[in-house]
Design a protein around this nucleic acid. Sequence first.
DNA 1: ATTATTAGTGAATAATTATTCAGAGATCTA
DNA 2: TAGATCTCTGAATAATTATTCACTAATAAT
Lengths: 321, 321
Amino acid sequence: MSRLNELRMISRVAQMYYSENLRQTTIAAHLRISQASVSRMLKRAQEEEIVRTTVVPPLGTFVDLEAQLRSTFSLAEAIIVECSDDHDGEIMSRIGEAAAHLLEVTLQTGDIIGVSSWSETILKMVNNIHPMKNGKARYVVQTMGGIGDPTVQTHANQLTTRLARLTGAEAHLLNTPGVAQSREAKLVLVGDNFVRETINLFDKISLAIVGIGSIEPSRMLTRSGNIFSSRELLEVKEAGGVGEISLRFFNSDGVIVKTSLDERVIGMTLKEHSHVDRVIALAGGKYKTDAIRAALKTGIIDLLITDKFTAGRLIETSLSK
Amino acid sequence: MSRLNELRMISRVAQMYYSENLRQTTIAAHLRISQASVSRMLKRAQEEEIVRTTVVPPLGTFVDLEAQLRSTFSLAEAIIVECSDDHDGEIMSRIGEAAAHLLEVTLQTGDIIGVSSWSETILKMVNNIHPMKNGKARYVVQTMGGIGDPTVQTHANQLTTRLARLTGAEAHLLNTPGVAQSREAKLVLVGDNFVRETINLFDKISLAIVGIGSIEPSRMLTRSGNIFSSRELLEVKEAGGVGEISLRFFNSDGVIVKTSLDERVIGMTLKEHSHVDRVIALAGGKYKTDAIRAALKTGIIDLLITDKFTAGRLIETSLSK
DNA sequence: ATTATTAGTGAATAATTATTCAGAGATCTA
DNA sequence: TAGATCTCTGAATAATTATTCACTAATAAT
């Protein structure tokens, strides 16, 4: 008999609290009960579903998909961006914008940023960052040598330098090619003092921004300026490699694939990445889907920024497996 | 361009807060922003209607009607009870139950309760109160003499006494008829020391519980045991009286109607009631609707407990005026 | 009936959230 | 381009809310 009266009172309290925006103390005084009781009644109101709170995501956001990505791949966060069509230029622009915003909002004072420098998406990001006057980041560290011909290398350096300026940080460049001609050549290059200094910063990095690459030869060769021969890529493929981060390969289970290329690549390893507090991956596009899924399985990525189409494929194909 | 990213972040924060029940500090740490920003984002989320909180009143409660009563009549609170049909017995029982619950939950330690003792609804209330062991109220004061014949008077006293025992209070009775034979008789009755003592408590009352009566002669006469003659009631009617509280009359605008009866009635006046911190009125029923509406307009009532049918009529007819 | 367990209360306090404040940019104006 | 105004931020703090505690009373179990 008294349950209805009780519920009546609870819903009156809920009404006063949620609709009339009164403080609990005010309600308590009005109804001649203690503030503690008001608090408890509001809790009951939740339990009895007398109050319901719904989060309505704005159009163009993908809360559900993001949640699925987070749980499927044990990601700390996932950001999915709207984009008009499933093509690389569009995707990179949108991801770059979102990444720029993320960086602006979440960069910590004193952060040491690592960038693998030559991804086009990362370039888009840098292009969208507004300068942060008061020097928030400490260093921007280039985690990967420049690729291929000297022009590209210069370009890579510029990206790093620019990001440093924008974030008010000091740039630490890796003035080497990304891939040395040989094991011996790498040793020589790495012997340089400036290079050593940068490499020594790798384990100080608190925030790494990486791209994810597939190893489809066509793309790889185009992008890398032919630094790997088809034969070398074949070796990677035969070892099961489906994707790379900073030219370090992994298979479809996210397990690192060791190849003879490793000893020629100059840059941060995947293991080194795994010690970084926050690793943000920027990647999207149809042909990259498998590589991204594999990259997520390596467990080194904390936050993925991708587009809605790619996100859809990542979930879809993972479910059907 | 960045607005979407911003909203995206806000809705993520809202999701973490409302759906995942994380603390703002946790969210702040996860997203690398300050707790203050999380708080602000949640506020924005409300404003942008990304989170919506709805209060769903349980069936059998009448949140909307109550709100209408409150605003129409400037009531501090209104309680509307469910009841199966629009007849007095049912209505009184339901109102009595609700009043009992209200009293149990909201009675303050040290309260001095005034009761106008002979309303059947108040009797129902008393019958539904569970004894409060630790003596919460101080006094229960009878604010109205017993009506009519001695049996009824005893009954009224018992009601007061019982309420006192249930609330752990000391009873202060008004051992007089409610209406004296004449002005002179009243003076004599009021001269009694016990009676004086009780009357002196009227302005100490912190909580008054009153019934509302219509002046339809039939009812009035039945209830009062013929203490007013038809002629006397006619006087009241001609003066515009439509209802009464403790045999004090008011017209349809809630204005007090002075008549020659006043000097014979022994009990608390309306003016005295207006100084009481909380005046709770218990009333419902078709024939009482006009009286209740008028009573509400007097402004002395803080809280009305009525039934859904009467509430509907109170609103309806007030709107059409 | 009598004890044990459970449920409920308000006061005090701990935890959490909102706001104020001071400073840094951004934006607008002339 | 400088100045004025407005906006945004995080740290500190104020305000608010949730929980603990000590206790009462209700209910169940023996």
